[in-house]
Amino acid sequence: MPTVNLTVNGKAVSANVEARTLLVNLIREQLGLTGTHVGCDTSQCGACVVHVDGKSVKACTMLAVQANGSKVTTIEGLANGDKLHPMQEAFREHHGLQCGFCTPGMVMSAVCLAKGHPNLTEKEVREGLEGNICRCTGYHNIVQAVLAGAKAMGG
């Protein structure tokens, strides 16, 4: 079985996986980080979004072996102890969620989108979140949250 060595949320991790193991399965089932969700099997919903070397990707559409040697950040890696990440705080403040299933992916996509862009426009946010589907909110509050979160991150 191939071995993968990764840094996940700042910690070095080594795991044996099958070649076919998806990154999301490694994260959820072997590392026990169940904040990253799986909402579809067609690579369309974005519930599984994590950062690999700083870029948002769908963890259900990447093999664990492809991520060998990379730095992975999941939703669990955003907060600083009890202090939420500004984007998480903005989702809470602006009620950017209802059932919460899409939220980890939304937040991870939003953090990547907002990095270096504190003054995103509503259009940019809506286009930037095209790969994240929410069945509850109608998106309005998510967009408000991301606009505020981007400002709070300050680029």
């Binding site: 974005g46 990707v57 930037g128 790969g131």
Partner: peptide
Amino acid sequence: IGDRQVRHC
């Protein structure tokens, strides 16, 4: 093309 996550890969 697709969405940001697809475009990153």
